[in-house]
Amino acid sequence: MRTVILTLALLTLAGCSSAGWYVVDPTTTRGWNNLTFMLSGAYYTILLSVTAISISIVIGLLVALPGLSKNIWWRRFNRTYVEIVRAVPVLVLILYIYYGLPAMSDAITLSVFWSGVIALALSDSAFQAEIFRGGIQSIARGQYEAAQSISLNYRDTMRFVILPQAIRRILPALGNQLVYMLKMSSLVSVIGMQELTRKANELSVTEYRPLEIYTVLVLEYLVLILIVSYFVRRLERRLQASEV
């Protein structure tokens, strides 16, 4: 917490060295309007990130499970997916999906929002797949054997025995990915998504006060991510109460 306060103080100091704070001064009408304009981007930043991570967790799990199969072809599918998807930069994926895909066929039309969601979700899913694979692999073999000895099938074994334990273990990593996702969502600004970064860019162009505006932008992300971290930690603690 002390480090956080120190960072905030430094940022404020950096800003104070300029005379341009009026553009975001909430006591003036103009500053207030600018601030609410910037803050309104949070809606899409959050919506985009949360939608994308929900999808990427599902894809990640669906890709992780074949990676644990005895069948080499399932494992190869897992490896191929992870290696290829992981190798594409997020920004490139966003451009590819938004500009590239519709050029393939007239049947494909994607909104800015869904292009962003798909690109972020795909990109993150490769990492999710590795996180889930690691988490599932960390569960002792005895748990599978106990499940087998009471005749549980594969689906029930995963659903009731393995995944609940694996998810507790990978929670810190999942929290990490959510934070990462919030930051990555700023890249969707390049195709015109009206999220935090895009709003700041637009304001910066009209007001011509990049230092102050981007300082506020940094703070916006910082506060958002601190809130997320807080809830992830709380969830961790709650689940730990029922951990081994």
């Binding site: 748990q143 106990a146 000895s149 025995v161 334990q165 507790r168």
Partner: peptide, 15 residues
């Protein structure tokens, strides 16, 4: 279905 097993390490489901 006919055979049950008890393990050295118990292997209870900890959660």
């Amino acid at each position: 279905g006919a055979v049950g097993m008890v393990f050295q390490q118990f292997n209870l489901f900890p959660h």
